[in-house]
Simulated assay, not measured.
Amino acid sequence: MRRSTAMIACMAGTAVGLVALTAGPAAASEPHSLYSPSAVVLTVGQGESAATAAVERAVTLTCKPTAGGTHPDAKAACADLERAHGQPALTLNDDSGRVCPRIYAPVTVTADGVWEGRRVSYEQTFANNCVAHSRVSHLFDF
């Protein structure tokens, strides 16, 4: 009886050791994700530059593998960035036709993060809130 218990313990220890040895290298060589990271932090603030603007609103946007974050319309914002190849400047509208007052109260929008593994840093200042709303797409509509 004593001999069979010792034999079972030895076999169990050998089996655990073999599993640990074979599982280690396989797990290390597997990729962590099939998608490159795509996540940005978007802000809207009052001021002439990102350095001096008082941030009024800020949201997070994650696009890969699925749209998410705190952005209210993450799916549409991710679609805008996808069409613009991750360049926030290319998501702005030029022909909204909206008439805005000529009041100077600068509004600055920023986008900082990563798009498909590349660093993204963007800043744009508009003359006032009306002009900003006439130019922004879904990306900065929060």
Score class of each variant (00 low, 15 high):
residue 9 A to P: 10
residue 111 A to E: 01
residue 6 A to H: 10
residue 35 Y to A: 15
residue 115 W to N: 02
residue 61 L to P: 00
residue 69 G to S: 10
residue 122 Y to S: 08
residue 141 D to R: 12
residue 23 A to M: 10
residue 10 C to T: 14
residue 92 L to G: 00
residue 20 A to P: 11
residue 107 V to M: 02
residue 24 G to F: 14
residue 87 Q to V: 13
residue 76 A to H: 08
residue 125 T to I: 07
residue 56 E to F: 05
residue 32 H to R: 12
residue 79 A to K: 05
residue 3 R to I: 07
residue 22 T to A: 14
residue 83 R to G: 06
residue 76 A to Y: 03
residue 43 T to Y: 04
residue 90 L to N: 05
residue 124 Q to A: 14
residue 100 C to V: 07
residue 137 S to A: 08
residue 85 H to S: 15
residue 122 Y to D: 05
residue 105 A to H: 10
residue 130 C to E: 05
residue 51 A to M: 05
residue 73 D to F: 00
residue 30 E to V: 08
residue 7 M to G: 06
residue 108 T to R: 01
residue 107 V to E: 01
residue 54 A to S: 11
residue 58 A to Y: 04
residue 48 E to S: 14
residue 1 M to Q: 06
residue 90 L to R: 12
residue 106 P to R: 07
residue 105 A to E: 08
residue 127 A to Q: 13
residue 16 V to M: 15
residue 112 D to W: 02
residue 43 T to E: 01
residue 130 C to Y: 13
residue 97 G to R: 06
residue 72 P to V: 14
residue 17 G to N: 09
residue 94 D to V: 11
residue 30 E to R: 09
residue 96 S to H: 12
residue 134 S to C: 12
residue 32 H to A: 12
residue 93 N to Y: 13
residue 13 G to H: 09
residue 21 L to F: 13
residue 121 S to V: 12
residue 63 C to E: 04
residue 6 A to C: 09
residue 59 V to K: 11
residue 7 M to P: 03
residue 107 V to T: 06
residue 132 A to R: 15
residue 23 A to N: 05
residue 93 N to V: 15
residue 82 E to Y: 06
residue 88 P to M: 10
residue 50 A to M: 01
residue 59 V to M: 12
residue 71 H to G: 05
residue 33 S to C: 05
residue 108 T to D: 01
residue 130 C to S: 04
residue 122 Y to E: 05
residue 39 A to Q: 09
residue 9 A to N: 09
residue 101 P to I: 07
residue 21 L to W: 15
residue 28 A to W: 06
residue 67 A to G: 12
residue 109 V to E: 00
residue 122 Y to T: 02
residue 69 G to W: 10
residue 21 L to K: 10
residue 26 A to T: 08
residue 7 M to E: 10
residue 48 E to L: 07
residue 50 A to G: 15
residue 128 N to V: 14
residue 36 S to Q: 13
residue 51 A to Q: 04
residue 97 G to P: 07
residue 91 T to D: 05
residue 82 E to H: 02
residue 19 V to P: 04
residue 121 S to R: 13
residue 114 V to W: 08
residue 75 K to W: 02
residue 61 L to E: 02
residue 62 T to A: 15
residue 92 L to C: 00
residue 121 S to Y: 03
residue 42 L to S: 03
residue 86 G to N: 07
residue 77 A to D: 01
residue 35 Y to L: 11
residue 116 E to D: 15
residue 39 A to I: 09
residue 134 S to P: 02
residue 83 R to K: 13
residue 2 R to D: 08
residue 104 Y to G: 03
residue 51 A to K: 02
residue 14 T to N: 06
residue 113 G to N: 03
residue 84 A to I: 12
residue 22 T to C: 09
residue 127 A to V: 12
residue 103 I to P: 00
residue 51 A to Y: 01
